[in-house]
Design a protein around this nucleic acid. Structure first.
Lengths: 207, 207
DNA sequence: GCCGAAGGTGAGCGGGCGCTTAGCGTGCCC
DNA sequence: GGGCACGCTAAGCGCCCGCTCACCTTCGGC
């Protein structure tokens, strides 16, 4: 992977599907700006400037500033869902699959904090149609996590009183990593992933 | 308490310390607007309009729009700290105090979601000085929660590998309630508080 | 070597932003 | 009951926003 495919804080981006090159650079610039300042506090001049272009160039590749956020949200949420699915549908006991799911989901939110922040915290900045589309992806994420927990309850490995509530809490815990994780802090994404996998196994009552 | 002291979603606000009356009405209007749309997407005209005043009236009571956010943040974070301190410094075993702390902290974040959202998620919209002041309050919140966990480890009630990491996770779990809690959803703040207290006791390894 | 498509720029429009200012009404003090 | 401090409004200033438009390059096809 080339240096151009890394964002400023070092995370590797999976924006390879975005073409042409100029459109991808604009999108990566937008991710960084939205993550730093928030969608509404980011100007189109700032995004274009980070990508080394004039403000007008943005509108060759995107109809509006909101379309940029929409594209970022869809790709990012799809990636998060894919990560969770890979772990959830792998081999192993529910205990192993839950630990795998949590640790990889957390690693993505910590390591790709810039992207994850935008994906998880700028939902309300989208218009109704776009928000509805993203919410559909979120429901699939929820269903995937709930599926693992239900499997563990069925095999007797887990001891859970409220499956829906616990699912919500587990996902909330993982997602909120994007808010507080500090790349220059004392923990690596791998360490947080391992810690959280342990905590979640305790939450579902694994002996 | 009068109806005028309730925000739109029914939560009772502790803004009694804010005087005169017009300043309090503006502040409550700002809390609602910031929670709905976010700080940067909220206009001073919107805040003043919600309070039934002209845009200029805002500047009689507050120097800038940011001062409003700063005041809200300080009062709200102080309230959150007070709630946690009351539970943390009460009587009982560490197990009882932790359950009490989590359930009351969560009840505040769920029931007072409008305020809690602003308090917990608009930190980055503050300038450097104001942010530093709020961060000092947050460190006290962190220390209070960590204190309970350390007490439980000392008495042998808790089995925790990483005290700092677990403290972070517990607070993250509680705070994120403000993001997803829905007043019209299936759970009451009390139910979420009870569920979360149980989950957190599991996280710290209470038998 | 000419042409059209694709991708870019500089200048700027309409509008809404945060905030200011001049002046008005009201009630309290003496 | 005159003066004045206080709370508030109507109007609007200067700025920067998202976005557009007229025009300029570059380049592959024939």
């Amino acid at each position: 992977m080339s240096a151009a495919e890394e964002t400023a804080d070092g995370e590797t981006s999976a924006w390879g599907e975005v073409t042409p090159d100029a459109a991808r650079r604009l999108l990566i610039a937008a991710v960084e700006a939205f993550a730093e300042r928030g969608y509404h506090a980011t100007t189109t001049r700032d995004i274009a400037g980070r990508a080394g272009m004039s403000p007008a160039a943005l509108y060759i590749h995107y109809k509006t500033k909101e379309e940029l956020l929409h594209r970022i949200s869809r790709i990012g949420n799809a990636k998060a869902l894919e990560i969770l699915r890979t772990a959830s549908r792998g081999e192993g006991t529910p205990t192993e699959r839950l630990a795998d799911a949590v640790s990889s989901f957390v690693r993505w939110h910590a390591g790709g904090r810039t992207t994850a922040r935008v994906v998880q915290y700028e939902l309300d900045s989208l218009g109704p149609d776009a928000r509805a589309e993203i919410l559909a992806l979120r429901r699939q994420v929820n269903a995937e996590m709930r599926g693992i927990i239900e499997d563990g309850v069925a095999t007797g490995e887990f001891d859970v009183l409220d499956v829906h509530g616990t699912t919500l809490a587990v996902l909330s815990l993982c997602v909120d990593v994007a808010r507080w994780f500090n790349v220059n802090g004392p923990r690596t994404p791998e360490e947080v992933g391992a810690l959280y996998a342990d905590l979640v196994l305790r939450m579902v009552g694994v002996k």
